[in-house]
Nucleic acid binder design. Structure first.
Lengths: 238, 238
DNA sequence: GATGCTAACTGATCTGGATCAGTGCGGCGC
DNA sequence: GCGCCGCACTGATCCAGATCAGTTAGCATC
């Protein structure tokens, strides 16, 4: 079984629910790649000619400014696809945080298959819509949450992602640095540290190592972090 | 010509580039609606059973918290479609800022047409991807820009949207309140006012009325606001 | 054209998170 | 084992933007 086959068969991702034939065709055009940690997988501003699926490792999508500011737009977990756009060039870059393995799909090839395969088209639409929902979630976090709320919701999100990948352990990995978390949440690494310390001192989490959290009180963590949207019967705030 | 026909024929939107037959079918399932200012067009948390296209007026997509905080996720202009999701319920609401006119498309009907019409499927995918790009832009704004930068980029955005709708006048309308702008940019209305005052006092804009700006120095406004992503040759910041 | 009423603006003060400046610690090379 | 290096944490100070408190400018109503 080729390197890409397994990742294309994964449930709940781009191709999981597709029929055999379509998956075989995708597999035929998929190009397996490996990259070392600390490299651009997608160069910001490069010609947008391919779509990728992360097979293994951790990566993130980020936008940079000329002053060296960075905003991480998404953390990528195995099975996630990225670099999908209709623009000529990528507005953002994708960075390998660890050693990673990818499937690369040439955009024009994929586009060809998509036009003759409604089921694939639909899968892509579902995935892009999901991504839209999750970025809107991030907008809310950045616009209207305090530092503590941001970190609490981030821990919930980390746990959720890892649970979905099927790791039911008591501990949740933190596979990125404090600086990465800060650049995702619109904070500094110091603020992330302080928020974690505070959550620990209040007994919501344990921090046995810098890259591991144990969530001790999920309901309270959720209530601090998630700030649930509520079905409003009538009348707006503004 | 029915109320919806014109909006379905509009170029650059959901249905602009479709063939006659598909457009006729869409038109057949489109239900024209009008709503007064200050009402929910889409109730947050309501069953997600329809998709809408804004025909006339202004509206916005917003998420609320139980503490009365609000984050506006997008301002809607004529031709925009919204409330498109694969979830059971809307995570966000859409609010009529002025009197509005809509086309309503029942989700199950649209879904049926979409599966047999690749061109429509593709149009939706392009639109959703564009929305994703613009929300990512907002993430960057909220995560890494100062108040002045946010307001400057917002004015550029307003001007861009209105230019695209074909209003080449020297003045740009501001069809929403300062509080709305604040809730979009993650600020307070006071901060929005101060930023506008400062941009005016530095000669970048004129403010003949509260709901109109004249952009006097677009290059400088862009350079303050847009903080362009730059194609990085190698090496990350983190 | 006086009387409210609402939204925009502005000034004074407060504060959450940034910034600056360390300390502590775990992993790695020698 | 020991020194080095990089990251996480923590303490002290600073500051951008929030908050609080008016003032001003339309605009509708009588």
């Amino acid at each position: 079984m080729s390197a890409c086959a397994q990742c294309l068969a994964r449930q709940g991702t781009l191709c999981g629910a597709l029929d055999e034939e379509t998956r075989a065709r995708l597999l035929a055009m998929a190009h397996a790649e490996e990259h070392a940690a600390g490299r651009w997988l997608v160069q910001p501003g490069a010609a947008a000619d391919a779509v990728f699926i992360l097979r293994a490792g951790h990566a993130h999508v980020a936008r940079l400014t000329h002053e060296g500011k960075r905003q991480i737009l998404a953390f990528l977990f195995p099975g996630d696809f990225f670099a999908f756009t209709y623009e000529q060039r990528y507005a953002y870059g994708a960075w390998a945080a660890t050693d990673v393995a990818l499937c690369r799909l040439a955009r024009h090839q994929l586009e060809g298959l998509v036009t003759t395969t409604p089921a694939l088209e639909r899968r892509i639409r579902v995935q892009v819509t999901r991504q839209l929902d999750s970025v809107q979630e991030l907008v809310f976090t950045l616009g209207r949450k305090t530092a503590l709320e941001r970190v609490a919701s981030f821990l919930w999100y980390l746990d959720y992602r890892q649970r979905k990948l099927g790791r039911p352990g008591a501990m949740t990995d933190i596979p990125m640095s404090r600086a990465d978390i800060a650049d995702f949440l619109g904070l500094t690494s110091e603020s992330v540290s302080r928020a974690l310390t505070r959550l620990r001192s209040e007994g919501l989490i344990s921090l046995p190592a810098a890259d591991q959290v144990g969530i001790l009180d999920m309901p309270r963590l959720r209530s601090i972090g998630v700030v649930e949207a509520e079905p409003v019967p009538e009348q707006p705030p503004g």
